[in-house]
């Protein structure tokens, strides 16, 4: 019974993420307005047939901006997760498999970095290298590395003791081959789950950073940026907060449901 509920959660979450993705990508083909086009006449206009989500304080169409912002948020999320996952997996694999002094030393560093919340790490990074979309991706990617490496390390430590690894060693497989050809496919389910959790965190952190004004820079839109701009108009134009907020919640809920309780592990196993 438990299996079916996690699987159901995974499907619901997947549909939510897919819906957000379709919504965001649709803007490339069909956006009602240019997201950066200002129209002084319709400043903070309420939702209407012309502007389904209303207009912001510069008279820009919120629907178009939410679409653009979602793409930006997803891009940053995916980009930073990719960076964090690649570096984290390599580090974690090497640490977990070889162990010893190298592992011990790196683990201390990771523990220290782990003690600092990822948003603070990203803030330090930004304060060192400056703002901008690319730096945000790097910063968040960097912030993901410690937790990712830690999770992968545990998994590789477990696999190291397995019989198939010993067999591969006896057959004379090289270290790199054992790590990435033999073990990696076996840790895929866990890895994918880590990716989902990291995506969730990256989207959350990007939103937070853009909300603070140190993420995506104007005139580009991102969901966090929009929410921060909307804050001043909360009373007069609540819809300005509601729509970007709603999209963000649906996206995060989707990721949450997909990664929840190893739902992905389940869905993945069933497939193979």
């Amino acid at each position: 019974m438990k299996k079916t509920t996690t699987n159901k959660n995974f499907i619901i979450g997947f549909c939510m993420v897919l819906a957000v993705l379709v919504f965001a990508l649709a803007g490339l083909v069909f956006a009602p307005f240019d997201p950066e086009e200002m129209d002084a006449a319709s400043k903070l206009a309420s939702p209407s047939f012309k502007h389904l989500f209303g207009c912001d304080n510069f008279g820009r169409d919120i629907l178009s901006r939410v679409q653009q912002g979602t793409r930006m948020t997803l891009l940053i999320g995916l980009g930073s997760t990719a960076i964090g996952a690649v570096i984290g997996t390599i580090l974690g694999a090497v640490m977990g498999y070889f162990g010893g002094l190298l592992d011990e030393g790196l683990m201390r560093v990771i523990d220290v970095l782990f003690a600092i919340p990822s948003i603070l790490l990203a803030l330090i990074f930004i304060s060192l290298f400056g703002t901008g979309t690319f730096n945000v991706i790097l910063a968040l990617g960097f912030a993901i590395v410690p937790s990712f490496a830690k999770m992968v390390r545990t998994e590789f430590m477990k696999q190291r003791e397995m019989d198939y690894v010993k067999a591969a060693k006896l057959m004379g497989a090289g270290r790199g081959r054992i790590l990435f050809v033999h073990i990696l496919p076996n840790v895929m389910p866990t890895l994918l789950n880590c990716v989902l959790i990291s995506l969730n965190n990256a989207v959350l952190a990007e939103a937070g950073m853009s909300f603070l004004g140190i993420g995506v820079q104007p005139p580009q839109a991102s969901l966090g940026r929009m929410l921060s701009e909307a804050q001043g108009h909360l009373q007069t134009a609540p819809f300005y907060t509601i729509f970007p907020g709603l999209v963000m919640i649906i996206m995060l809920l989707g990721f949450g449901l997909m990664s929840e309780g190893g739902g992905l592990k389940d869905a993945f196993r069933r497939k193979s």
Partner: peptide, 8 residues
């Protein structure tokens, strides 16, 4: 609630 960012 787990999916709503604190600032939102």
């Amino acid at each position: 609630f787990m999916s709503v960012p604190p600032f939102l």
